[in-house]
Simulated scan of single mutants.
Amino acid sequence: MNVSTMRAVLVQRYGGPEVLVEQTVARPDPGPGDVLVRVHAAGLNPLDLYRRAGYAAIPESLRPTPPTLPFIPGVDLSGTVVAVGDRVTRWAVGDEVFGLVRFPSRDDGGRAYAEYATAPEDDLARKPSRLDHIQAAAAPLVVLTAHQFLTEHTGVGAGDTVLVNGAAGGVGHILVQLAARAGASVVAIASGRHRAFLTELGVERFIDYTSTPVEDWPRDVDYLFDSVGGPRSSRLTAVVRDGGTIMPVFYGDYGTERGITVRTGQVRSHGAQLAEMAELFDAGALRVGVDSVFPLAEAAAAHRRAEAGHIRGKIVLTVDGA
């Protein structure tokens, strides 16, 4: 292959997983404040599925503007710096980095489903030595979402009771760990198959939604983090105490009653915060779960796996057999 080209997965039209097609495209050049990363692995997020489908699954009143076609999906990556822009001071060729790249952004984003991607230098952090590239690619969006939601939007701390719905998923299993680390008592809602996994991560009470009726779920929790959302989300309001807080990771219809606050937030790229989380990974104080791994050429199969549900942690695409 010509050094000026690369393999990438593109979305040429909105639709199902079948619209993800690997093609040969021009390799990007880094801007003055960017680095060029040789991507070893790219994380798959629900965002990728929504964007691929033109946000068709989201109610029209809440639907963002779809990205301009064609586009390369992916905002999470882990790889090696191969070139730097003129104004870059933090990184050098050969550095191993990971990051949530250009987020939020409607069009550009990370363009991580590719052999190479550019990234603003401040969006990246040094890859934790304890993680391989697959694990590192799984981490950025979910770690930053959990960290920012807990510290910037809610302020969870010792003595609080936190309930995480969808606790075994990407954001959920990180929320569980960081909330427990903050001193909160954590309740997890997930399928029974994930009980042991979540107990290891610090959950004090586990609710198997497949066998425990909503009426028997806990009441009077201080914070509900809902990483599932959707049209049935209103049933969760009953578990929150008067004056408590609901923090949806995705859209949901919770209503407002009993002084409950529904607080929304938008995760953003932040290399410095990600570096803090990298220290926790290297200290063994934080884990990232990987559900399954697919080669870049099988991105459509990876999206079908995501749509099948019951994910434990994250799905990752390998670009070079990392």
Score class of each variant (00 low, 15 high):
V35C: 03
L44R: 05
A42F: 02
D48I: 03
D48Y: 01
R27D: 12
L49F: 01
R27W: 09
N45S: 14
A26V: 12
R38Y: 05
G43I: 11
G54E: 07
D48W: 01
D48N: 04
V37H: 14
A42V: 02
R38P: 01
A42H: 05
V39G: 13
R51A: 15
G54W: 07
P28M: 08
A53R: 13
D34N: 09
N45E: 13
R52F: 04
G43Y: 10
G33M: 05
P46K: 07
R38K: 15
A42D: 10
L47F: 14
P46W: 11
L49I: 01
A42P: 02
A42G: 11
E60V: 14
A57Y: 02
A41K: 06
A41R: 09
A56P: 00
P28E: 11
E60Q: 15
L49E: 05
R52T: 08
A53Y: 01
P32S: 15
P30D: 10
P46L: 05
A42I: 07
L44Y: 01
P28L: 03
G33T: 12
R27L: 13
P28R: 03
Y55C: 03
D34Q: 15
D34T: 04
A41W: 09
A56K: 14
A57I: 00
N45R: 00
R27Y: 08
G43V: 10
I58S: 10
G43P: 02
P30C: 03
P28G: 06
R52D: 04
L44I: 15
G31F: 06
N45V: 04
L44W: 02
A41I: 07
D48E: 12
G33L: 06
L47A: 15
A57Q: 13
L36E: 05
P32N: 08
R27Q: 14
D29V: 11
E60K: 09
P30K: 04
D29K: 07
L47M: 10
E60D: 15
Y50E: 08
L49Y: 01
G43Q: 13
R27P: 09
P28Q: 10
Y55A: 03
E60M: 08
R52H: 06
A57F: 09
G54K: 13
L36K: 05
R51Y: 02
H40P: 05
P59M: 13
A56Q: 14
L49C: 03
G43T: 04
P46G: 07
D34R: 09
P30N: 06
A57L: 04
D29F: 01
G54I: 05
P59I: 05
H40I: 02
V35N: 03
A41D: 14
A56H: 10
P32Y: 08
P59V: 04
D48P: 01
D29A: 14
P46C: 14
L44G: 01
V37Y: 12
N45C: 11
G31R: 12
G54H: 07
E60I: 09
I58F: 12
V39M: 13
Y55P: 02
A57N: 06
R27G: 01
V35K: 02
P59H: 08
A41H: 06
G31H: 10
